[in-house]
Nucleic acid binder design. Structure first.
Lengths: 201, 201, 201, 201
DNA sequence: ACATAAACGAGACGGTACGTCTCGTCTTTTG
DNA sequence: CAAAAGACGAGACGTACCGTCTCGTTTATGT
């Protein structure tokens, strides 16, 4: 969203956009390297080759900066195909690509902060929204097509998928077969079974 | 003792249980009031009527202190009844009582930190373990009784339950009917439906 | 004296002369009030209306701060007149004005520290230099004029004067007639006699 | 033992001369090694193999401890011979043996502290008393014999000798010929001259 | 011979100050 | 005349000692 700033301006803003992007890139790099709790605004400014003033001109705090940095790291949402199982899996893969290291700790830390500062109107769920949108659309489509009941609790479905994947990333175990099992569970009512590669635990 | 030198003795003043408990209590109070990110060790010491040194003597950092404070807040695990649906619900209720405010933000923030500092051997999942243990036992029991398939993926079941509840708490919406729907989904393969009270969204 | 810091840097805010002076003034005040051993950097910062960081930005320690504070308190050296007796007395008066309370304890404490940390290249004698320079010049002049022998041990003369005055201040007795007696002793070989005001001891 | 302390107590363990001496010895060692400002009571207790309590049982503070430690290091005063020049030199040699490292910094630091805390009735001059006593007796004797004027200002003579030697130690230069020159100056009114070994400066 | 009680080692305690770090703001100078 | 460089006030960090206060243990009386 903020990446389009300066599009309509002629001069003086071009350099601004450069700084803008350099700051976001530096933030992402440092988040990957040291994590959210050891991220410092001075470090970001130094890495971006920019003054601290410039960082604070556009972001009110370290929190806001990290928020946009992980948000801007989001990939394009996958297109819907109309195949419910495929679309659900694609949505989960999109989520996983965001949740995976190196940003998982940042997302959790930010979620903790936002949860506490609910007075600011911030909604922690928004942190995990990009994958959820795809998911919501897929479920709605399926409900309209009749592949899912019309009164399906799509919000709970979203929460089950997001929450489970989030927790799996926390555990840092394999997430390879989780998407398949979650689809079977929801769509077919199929109880998840252990697969051979689970045996070593 | 009677045989000669009393080696088991260690002279000096012992750790004062009073200070210890006062510090943990103060930590829990302040976590409730201001949240993890605004928690300060100096504040804890002042509230507990204790020197900062005493806090650092027993806990190496604010993180370790918060970790024990939220851990010590855990309630007794509910007893198993042998009724699968009831036991699952009881386990989830136990989880919810820990996840709910005022410690949800602390747990997330700590999980973020622990995830990053995996080198210290800390496991973020341990933060959510107490409810998970009950759940694991309930699922194992049911598998042995034949109420669930013998090869049920109990770990995934745990992650689905823990993750979904965690995410629900994040959203701060009602979690009242979630436990029922999750039980139906897992045990009966029943797709979650919207209930009347979901209509206002 | 002016420190000479503040030569042209590449860019950015320069050192604030206001803060700098406020810190030195606060240090001198507190040295007078509570002495060196009870001087705290936090107290200095508070009195100067300044952050602790700013103190530590320009002085590496309480010792360095006190060192500059008492050094900066030095008055202008008196001009030489060519009258040996007068010049010696003037030099001693200059010394006394520095040695006297409220800084005598600070000078001694600092001298003790510097003596121990000789590895840092610090020379405790420098603490007492300003008066010694005047003295040295006076003696050299007199030697060239022939008022004193050409091979007079000027360094010992300095040490006798400085040491005796220092010790007198330590004793906190009257120093009024000491300068006169010291001049007589050195210049005229006159043994010091008790004067009426010495009788009360 | 044989300290005579506590003789009148009714029962119980007496003060252990061993601990007492071990503490003083440890204090002197540490003063030599790290100096007064880095001396810690905990360090003394550890070095002496003693509990901190025991140190504080017999000395009220680090200052009092150091005071006694350097005092106890004093050597026996030299006997008077009746030869003024010899006695003066002997007195100065006694002073020098105390002033010299490793205790010079301690004496100065203590003097600074005592000077400030004059309210406690402490007299910094007492730190340098042992040599001064010999000196005072020598001067008094000489005055009675007629070797010095009857109204010689003996206090100033003491201060000149003590102060000059103190300052010489501060400068850490050779003090070998200083005693001779000071005797000549006082007794013969002889202006100090540079000697060959002074030339290198 | 035993009871008594002071002195002991160990070290936890409430504090104070240290010197460092980062925050978010403010000011100066340069390109 | 914008933005870099970076000084600034504020305040928490974790450490080091301070001097006090229990803890049991040890040990020399003095019955």
């Amino acid at each position: 969203m903020a990446t389009g700033v300066g599009r309509a301006r002629s001069a003086g803003r071009r350099r601004s956009a450069d700084s803008h992007l350099a700051i976001l890139a530096a933030t992402r790099e440092l988040l990957s390297e040291v994590g959210y709790s050891r991220l410092t605004v001075e470090g970001v400014a130094a890495r971006a080759g920019v003054g601290k003033t410039t960082v604070y001109r556009w972001w009110s705090s370290k929190k806001a900066l990290a928020l946009e940095a992980v948000g801007a790291a989001r990939s394009e949402p996958p297109p819907l195909t109309g195949d419910l199982r495929h679309d659900l899996r694609a949505a989960m893969d999109a989520m996983l690509s965001e949740l995976r290291a190196p940003f998982a700790d940042t997302l959790l830390a930010l979620a903790g902060d936002l949860l506490r500062d609910a007075s600011e109107g911030a909604d922690p769920v928004a942190l995990f929204d990009s994958g959820r949108d795809v998911l919501a659309t897929a479920v709605e489509d399926a409900a309209q097509r009749g592949d899912l009941p019309a009164d399906v609790d799509d919000q709970l479905v979203q929460d089950i998928y997001t929450g489970t994947l989030l927790f799996r990333v926390l555990c840092r175990r394999s997430t390879d077969d989780v998407t398949a099992k979650l689809v079977e569970l929801l769509v077919d009512g199929e109880m998840p079974r252990r697969t051979p590669e689970d045996q070593d635990r």
